[in-house]
């Protein structure tokens, strides 16, 4: 079985993001099987994946109905925006959380850098 838990998590999230309605673990298992992400994912595997996603704060579980219904906590775009904000935004301790390649290079400085490179290649 080549499918890792991480891949399954991503596939489950893709289905939840694409769906307007909350889904049950059985719905998700059927979708996973249909999409051939995993030939025949066991329902326990799907439940494990869902509870992991719930712990990470990506999935909301509705316990009022049986079987439990699951929906995405936020849209894919919202999550992407959150991630981008941490990467591009100026969260005060960003430099400690992650290190960006460009560091402190601004648009204006990039232009300067290109100028420097040009002047050297003409020499």
């Amino acid at each position: 079985m080549a499918t890792t838990l991480g891949e399954l998590e991503r596939s489950v999230m893709e289905f939840l993001w694409a769906s307007d309605e909350a889904m049950t673990a059985y719905d998700l298992r059927d979708r996973l099987a249909a999409a051939e992400v995993d030939r025949s994912p066991a329902i326990t595997t799907v439940l494990t994946v869902l509870s992991r996603l719930e712990n990470k704060g990506f999935v909301q579980r509705q316990r009022t109905s049986r079987p439990h219904l699951y929906r995405a906590q936020a849209s894919r775009e919202d999550h992407m925006a959150e991630l981008m904000h941490e990467v591009l935004g100026s969260a005060t301790n960003r430099s400690a959380v992650l290190e960006r390649f460009v560091g402190q290079v601004s648009e204006r400085e990039a232009a300067l850098l290109r100028e420097l490179l040009e002047s050297r290649s003409h020499r």
């Binding site: 919202d78 981008m84 591009l88 935004g89 100026s90 969260a91 005060t92 460009v102 648009e107 850098l113």
Partner: peptide, 29 residues
Amino acid sequence: IALVAGGTPGRDGDPSGGTTLPGTPALAP
């Protein structure tokens, strides 16, 4: 570095450039 920096118009907390980020507050450290 020149390419990466040049290709990121909105940098360092400036989301008004090419990459508009919804819900990104404009905070300056």
